[in-house]
Design a protein around this nucleic acid. Structure first.
Lengths: 254, 254
DNA sequence: AAGTGGTCTAGACCACTAT
DNA sequence: TAGTGGTCTAGACCACTTT
């Protein structure tokens, strides 16, 4: 019988340090991840069975399952009931980009309110905010500054309803950062966010102090209250040359 | 003593159906999520303690922890040891965009090889692929077609090394799709991926059959083998008007 | 039938926070 | 000191796949 990958892993890996501050399940997940990083386990290979791992490392089944669940959540292995657990190949499609990477642009920004007015909802606004056409809405235009440079141009329509405290809160200049970082005790239940690449128009380029043509990222958002009514529709536009998203696929280090 | 949010949750929620196909931990996570969706638990509120949940729903502590871990992983609650578990406010920065959303563009695409040649590495290529300047590399230009429309223009430099099977595999026209969807038994260990918004240049616009100026998404990638040597550097460019990323923050439905 | 992953129990002990 | 979350055990039973 040939040496199968599982056996190498069981034989050539360190044991779990019960004195460590690091939980056993995390150590075990790292041992398995390390085995993949070293090539002991290659894409497609089957991991040792849970029973084997229990015996080899002297931990309980629940601890093994937790370690494997972590790897499965991270997308590096694939569990199939009745068959086994297998190493996933690297796939570019697994890449995910976090908006929070732009924290340096949103986070410490100062907010300049360019306009705050009450306007009647046109067809488009009425549809997005689920109100009747002609209903009064609050329209706000803001410029977010960071390091003395304009980072984002933000336009937003808010449902106008004196009974909704969210509207008052939104007018505060700090509200935007709270919305981004989630520090507010907000009355929002959830939101839909869309990312697009666009060209700046003349007004946007002027405010963002650049020349045309210029590529830009546009983040459109709709936020809903606890009755599932939209309360805010708006979009952030920022110069593409000051933004990039990076991520990794496959084995994460550590 | 006032009715605190926890009590409402404990009193006004359904019990766990032990006959259901849905595991107890998933049911419990949904019950808690539903409590937030209904406003029984608002951002900042403390969840019932694990001991209370154990008593109320008649499940073991491990099952409760698993349910809460799921909510914590999804970013809707926040656990603090010694203090409790709390509902997180909605934060736009929590948005994450999955490259896999473009599966319709990458997935069923047919690949047209425009060029495949051997070129000497210039300074930039040598740096990205960690080889000496002047070393021979393989340069490939491809056009990905989808529904009879050009979807992506892809350029890629590969380390030229007859001992590396990856190079041969990459030349196959199907390799790109495999890379994206991860079906191949690849020899790649991990990759770095960067997303930017750019303007198309003339050549790109021509190949993608559009006019200037046009915004575009650019996905740059570097893939590494199991020795942590880069083997591939390239980038996909696609028209922005045919791509958008959407996601949600806060409470996910179901 | 044997082996695999998936769920769950009923506790235990620990670390941390508040009072 | 009491209450909280965090970890872990040593099994049990189940559903599924392979032989």
């Amino acid at each position: 019988m040939a040496h199968r990958p599982q056996n190498k892993v069981l034989q050539e890996t360190p044991s779990i340090d019960r004195e460590s501050f690091e939980p056993a399940y995390a150590q075990l997940a790292n041992i398995l991840r390390q085995s993949m990083a070293e090539g002991l386990l290659r894409p497609g290979d089957q991991l040792p069975s849970e029973a084997q791992i229990v015996a080899r490392y002297g931990v309980s089944p629940m601890t093994v399952r937790r370690a494997i669940n972590i790897l499965a959540d991270q997308g590096v292995v694939n569990t199939e009931q009745g068959r086994g657990t297998f190493v996933k190949p690297v796939a570019m499609s697994a890449a995910s980009f976090q908006l929070g990477q732009l924290q340096n642009l949103f986070g410490g920004a100062t907010v300049q309110v360019l306009e705050a007015s009450i306007v009647a909802a046109d067809e488009r606004v009425a549809r997005k905010l689920a109100v009747r056409q002609g209903k009064r809405t609050i329209y706000i235009r803001r410029l977010l500054w960071n390091h003395d440079q304009p980072a984002f141009y933000h336009r937003e329509y808010l449902v106008y309803d004196p009974a909704r405290p969210i509207v008052e809160a939104e007018l505060e200049v700090t509200a935007l950062q709270q919305l981004f970082s989630g520090r507010s005790e907000s009355l929002l239940k959830h939101g839909d966010i869309t990312m697009e690449a666009t060209l700046l128009d003349e007004e946007e380029a002027c405010l963002l102090q650049t020349s045309l043509p210029m590529a830009a990222f546009c983040f459109e958002h709709v936020f809903y209250d606890f009755d599932n009514h939209p309360v805010s529709w708006g979009w952030f536009i920022g110069r593409a040359d000051r933004m990039r998203f990076t991520t990794q696929v496959g084995l994460l280090l550590e």
